[in-house]
């Protein structure tokens, strides 16, 4: 097929053509997932301004108010209110903030640890590789929830500890995939030529290896977002998440679970939020993976 595509010439490509090409490449943008994710991010960042009510203070007179479109519902509580008279919509919006914060910090932490470990293991090889990969294997063999519950019992329950636990859960995947990528990149001739040109090891890692793993990193991160949100929700559901009364989606689902018969919306609304965000993130991640690197389809 190389025959048919012909060869590229090195004449400068005019800017409009470049923009047009880029637009063409983006043509199958997953619009709905992107829309959902934008709402998620805006809710998370602007919860203070957007939420109609204080999520932690309830109105005893307005307990278990159904959503606005149902009989007995009120536009004051669009998605209804819970057993303590707190606005469900506001709690879902504030829950987005918790999820967003957890995702960002967890991925930053887990990503940095995982990428560094992967770079070192892949680039240096030898005993460093052995040690790092065995730790990864051991980590992957321990059930995450179990580990999390034990650590929380031992260390207590706080945002920082939750995030550290989640980072522990995600870094091995980063390490393993980045290592694989580095193993391939370091055999490229340009890495050998950089050594010949006198480049130091840190320079080679930063200038020649790291840029090559960025695509993998972005794809991995988007796919990990869903996992992190689900894990955090699970922990919250089990009562081991961010401590109440801060509204987290998982603990909201747990709160409403005994009242499903009387007020189903208390559990269902945060549940739907979890589903929408995770599904959108995965769809977006799949699309991104196909765009950036179709080779990675076997990931996950």
């Amino acid at each position: 097929m190389a025959e048919a595509t012909g060869r590229l010439t090195a004449a400068p490509i005019p800017v409009p053509v470049r923009i047009a090409r880029r637009a063409w490449r983006l043509r199958r943008l997953p619009l709905i997932p992107i829309f959902v994710l934008i709402i998620f991010v805006i809710s998370g960042l602007g919860a203070n301004w957007i939420a109609p009510h204080n999520p932690e203070r309830g109105d005893i007179r307005a307990r278990n108010v159904p959503p606005a479109w149902m009989e007995g519902g009120s536009t004051k509580y669009l998605l209804g209110s819970d057993h303590l008279g707190r606005d469900v919509l506001s709690r879902v919006i504030f829950g987005a903030r918790i999820s967003l914060a957890v995702v960002v910090v967890t991925l930053a932490l887990g990503g940095i640890v995982g990428v560094s470990a992967g770079l070192v293991a892949g680039f240096y090889g030898g005993w460093r590789d052995e040690v790092i990969m065995r730790i990864v294997d051991i980590k992957l063999a321990i059930p995450t929830i179990l580990l999390a519950l034990v650590l929380i019992l031992a260390l207590g329950q706080s945002f920082l500890i939750i995030v550290v636990i989640l980072a522990i859960a995600v870094w091995p995947r980063f390490a393993r995939n980045i290592r694989g990528e580095v193993l391939q990149l370091k055999t490229m001739d340009y890495v050998a030529l950089a050594k010949v040109a006198g480049a130091s090891t840190p320079r080679i890692l930063i200038m020649h290896i790291l840029p090559g793993v960025v695509n993998t990193l972005i794809i991995l991160a988007t796919l990990e977002v869903g996992i992190v949100i689900l894990l955090e929700s699970t922990l919250s559901f089990l009562g081991a998440g961010v401590p109440p009364p801060t509204p987290a989606w998982g603990s909201m689902v747990a709160d409403g679970r005994d009242r499903l018969a009387v007020a189903w919306w208390i559990s269902t609304m945060p549940g739907l939020a979890i589903m929408a965000v995770v599904l959108s993130m995965n769809l977006f991640g799949d699309w991104l993976r196909d765009k950036l690197d179709p080779r990675l389809r076997q990931l996950e």
Binding site: M188, D189, Y190, L193, V196, A197, H208, G212
Partner: peptide
């Protein structure tokens, strides 16, 4: 090191694409 440089076979692998 400075005095000895190299050109390799595969021109697709010997230049950092980024």
């Amino acid at each position: 090191r400075k005095s000895v440089q190299a050109v390799f076979q595969d021109p697709w692998s010997s230049l950092n694409p980024r």
